[in-house]
């Protein structure tokens, strides 16, 4: 009798402890969900706030507050942007630079990667040392600038394309992927008389679309977002990509705003309107490819981890 009582006592003790644990975990989960909800709002709402502002009429832009929807929906800001031919031009330059840049980068890098994927390639060790060196050393801003100058790439559209034709990191990723392709496929094509180029273009590339897409997407985001190339090497405004154009708009708006707050000159709000609408326009392509990007995050992160 006594022992049975003891056992049940222990049991209730245990279940009390268990209940306490479950309660603790429930509290943890609730706090966690609340915290992450607040975090998510802090990330997304400021972006949405800009979108709301960009669709507000110029009079209401300065008191949008924490609205979720424009007080007075208006397309005036966008009309201002679309009436500016230089912004159109920059948008086209960005599209051109991204499309040409991605296609050439992927093709050249894949071509080199295919050659490097062959273990018996003569000089392969030397090529590898040369390539690994590029991952650790660089000449820095000024020597690179001098190189671009002597190559005649200053103020040329090709400065967006040629210096980013090839990347050793991307090469490594592609090379590792090509190695996974079964050798028998290539062998049978060889017996049928196919040369290296035919095998590369008809067999290797079509079988590698996922990894090619990954490289293309990340390179595309780089090309679209890059303004540093223009800032460093381009002074002709006709060649500015949208990001560089936006940079200029921001600098001008900022200068005006700072003057306004230090002196008391009132400046028309059109520059802020243009800035907001241009930000949204420059971001739309990124948002459009975002679902595809997300599909390839992990492999992309591995590129990033090596790179930084």
């Amino acid at each position: 009798m006594k022992t049975i009582a003891n056992v049940s006592e222990v049991n209730t003790n245990l279940s009390n402890k268990k209940n306490k644990k479950i309660k603790e975990n429930r509290v943890f989960n609730i706090v966690n969900i609340i915290f992450l909800t607040v975090f998510t709002i802090i990330i997304i709402y400021p972006i949405w706030n800009i979108v709301v502002k960009s669709f507000s009429s110029p009079d209401t832009i300065s008191h949008v507050g924490l609205r979720l929807w424009p007080e007075e929906f208006s397309l005036v800001n966008y009309k201002l942007v679309f009436n500016d031919p230089t912004i159109w031009n920059s948008f086209l330059i960005s599209i051109l630079k991204t499309v040409v840049g991605v296609v050439t980068h992927v093709l050249l890098t894949a071509m080199v990667a295919y050659g490097m994927s062959k273990q018996n390639l003569i000089g392969r060790n030397f090529y590898t040392i040369l390539g690994v060196g590029t991952m650790f050393f660089s000449g820095g801003m000024i020597p690179t600038y001098l190189l671009m100058r002597s190559l005649g790439l200053l103020d040329s559209f090709w400065v967006y394309i040629i210096p980013s034709l090839f990347s050793y990191y991307d090469m490594l990723i592609l090379m590792n992927f090509f190695r996974e392709i079964p050798n028998s496929l290539e062998e049978s094509a060889k017996i049928d008389g196919a040369g290296v180029w035919t095998i590369f273009s008809r067999i290797v590339l079509p079988l590698s679309t996922p990894v090619l897409a990954t490289i293309a997407l990340f390179n595309g985001v780089y090309q679209w977002n890059d303004y540093m190339t223009a800032k460093l090497y381009i002074s002709n405004e006709a060649l500015y990509p949208i990001q560089m154009k936006l940079y200029e708009i921001i600098v001008q708006t900022q200068a005006a705003a700072n003057m306004q707050s230090t002196t008391s000159v009132v400046i028309p709000t059109t520059s802020e309107s243009i800035q907001l609408a241009t930000i949204v326009i420059a971001t739309v392509p990124i948002v459009l490819v975002y679902p595809f990007l997300q599909k390839y995050f992990i492999s992309g992160m591995m590129i990033g981890a090596v790179k930084e």
Partner: peptide, 20 residues
């Protein structure tokens, strides 16, 4: 197939290193 990549790396990485 490989040599264009090698030339690229020499021109765009190693020449600037020399430029230091």
């Amino acid at each position: 197939m490989v040599i264009p990549g090698i030339i690229f790396m020499i021109v765009f990485c190693y020449i600037p290193i020399y430029g230091i």
